[in-house]
Design a protein around this nucleic acid. Sequence first.
DNA 1: TTGAAAGCGCTAACAA
DNA 2: TTGTTAGCGCTTTCAA
Lengths: 342, 342
Amino acid sequence: MNNKNNIKRSRRGSGAITLRDVAKLAGVAPITASRAVNTPEQVSPDVLKKVLDAVQRTGYVPNRIAGGLASSRSRLIAAVVPSTVMSVFMETIESLNASLFDAGYQLMLGQSGYSAAREELLLEAVIGRRPDGIFLTGILPPGKSRTRLLASGIPVVETWDLTPTPIDMLVGFSHSDIGRAVANFLMSRKRKRLALVRADDERAARRAAAFTEAVRARGLPDVFVVNVGDSRSLKSGREAMARIVWEAPDVDAIFCSSDLLALGVVTQARAQGVAVPDRMAVIGFGDVPFLAEMVPALSTVRINGAEIGKQAAHFLIERAQGRPIDPRVLDVGFAIVERDTT
Amino acid sequence: MNNKNNIKRSRRGSGAITLRDVAKLAGVAPITASRAVNTPEQVSPDVLKKVLDAVQRTGYVPNRIAGGLASSRSRLIAAVVPSTVMSVFMETIESLNASLFDAGYQLMLGQSGYSAAREELLLEAVIGRRPDGIFLTGILPPGKSRTRLLASGIPVVETWDLTPTPIDMLVGFSHSDIGRAVANFLMSRKRKRLALVRADDERAARRAAAFTEAVRARGLPDVFVVNVGDSRSLKSGREAMARIVWEAPDVDAIFCSSDLLALGVVTQARAQGVAVPDRMAVIGFGDVPFLAEMVPALSTVRINGAEIGKQAAHFLIERAQGRPIDPRVLDVGFAIVERDTT
DNA sequence: TTGAAAGCGCTAACAA
DNA sequence: TTGTTAGCGCTTTCAA
């Protein structure tokens, strides 16, 4: 009779132990075994014991694919991260993943930032898995992808930014506020000629705009801007600093769009004999952990990436459980961390 | 009649467009629609057009959960990464993910390195998704988890290390070779008193052992070892250097178990007026990109993390398609990159 | 080239 | 508390 089973199963399936096997061994119906495994409080102690026993003996691991199909709840969350600068978001991804895991969810990782065609494919792949939620790094501009996501009905949380028109939920902070705050911070330190070193990045652009605006509002000379393009490397920072020394020698404070650029600026300053912070103040963005312990320790804008991940996870889990989120926007803020370079 | 459908569907399901809807609209059987979408070459041009049309009009996105259940192929690969030092492996994860995506696979991310209990849960969660393959950072020591993985029958690739007894497949390099090579490299540069600064990490321990052994074989004085414990920060590197200056002032070369530690050592050396590389050679491990452009540029051991990801993806995809891999072990090697600090 | 039937392994709905 | 039944949305198998 065992034989008959095997013959029957040989045609299809993975050959792995199923809930049916467990149920048979425990002498109960499959649904009872299911309940014993998933909602033990709904089952008598006697049955519970028999089922768990059978699970032990067979090494049964529930098939979440089948479960997901049956319940329309995949217990999967998709995270979309830009492939080029993943590192900045890692703290967030780690904390997101940890929070999700504790709640019984799995994280699927998608990398954006390639071609538009691949972006389209990524979205297809993501929606095709029917995740219970989608985590987006940044905000999605209006367009085909946004429409598509909206149409899918899957809860979405956008992050690392603020917008009056989120797709759904949002956990982030205001880049304009940062630009303004850093400008005021530097000006309050009696800096008179400010400069920006920034990568080609939409969020950096918004910080820059607010920074420039705040400087202008105080009647100081125009901000000297160095755009380093797509390269966020330390080397670009060095080159930018060399240009500033050459083209705008009166600059006495620089706001960089990333800590790495700032490190490059400081490195070059030392190479050219420009005293930091006496002659030149430098402040970065992102608070890469180890830069706090460099000499000189880098001043920077700290973003609590782990908090973003944690809160985003919370939002997504609540929604996945069918509970509404209100308000749907959370501003986690930022902090200017003053160290040696300002 | 549309109505009847809706009533019928209201009881269960996600309410999304299904293959059946598409098929109905195209006037073909569901299976034909399936073929048009998945294997268009098996279908007449006429039917193909009608089905693709219907897909367009409905915005149909195939449900991969259902597909996975029916075909026993989830097109999912699980990657397990230590949560504490994810950064080192990011290049690998990115390239792994990119390669997988191009082949139509999705990446699921799991974080290890928490408690043993959670490790157990992670394995359950991973196996429960029935991934077509599992990517492991590092090698799995014999134990319950290993047995379990083996029993699951899922293709596994271990990475970043070499062992004579892999679970299944392996893409890595020899840590002993590195320790030996670095020792010989430093000794060939006429360094006479070598030191190690290392984190509490099994792989670093093997590099250290081979390093020590190579030094001893040449009859040089014993290696001075500073173990910084679990902290891999720049700060630990600084403290280690301070200790070396104090306790073993004759040391003239240091091999650090990570670039960050090496950076700390160099930072402290500068602070204490120890000339690098004249008085002290320093070499790191990992080749964090930006350290190449610091002053002084850090010498290091370069691991091609992207290549590991790419090859691991290749191994897993081949196996997922049912093709055998032979040989199942790939040594991607390493390179000593000499820059300013040696 | 197309289709009908029968599941994949699980859970929702309803009934006892 | 336990069980029966009928799917979830897709693909495999077999037949036309």
